[in-house]
Amino acid sequence: QRLKVEDALSYLDQVKLQFGSQPQVYNDFLDIMKEFKSQSIDTPGVISRVSQLFKGHPDLIMGFNTFLPPGYKIEVQT
């Protein structure tokens, strides 16, 4: 089940909405994406940073997991 651009846009909207009062969080997320694209960090690096950034937001973490390659997953604390 390959994700589409619309899925990415929808997820990004969800992040923006949840952190509407903390725009810095979304900016931090964009920084992580930039570093990933420039290959400053790899997939495990992204996972580490995103799991810290979205700590306490299991829905965002589960949404993010859908974009990870097989074998990678951020564990959600329950």
Partner: peptide
């Protein structure tokens, strides 16, 4: 390891475009 969907998410986040 390739992460095509993560790359797609990054591209959409940064440019709004498909890779």
């Amino acid at each position: 390891l390739a992460a095509p969907q993560l790359i797609m998410l990054a591209n959409v986040a940064l440019t709004g475009e498909v890779n």
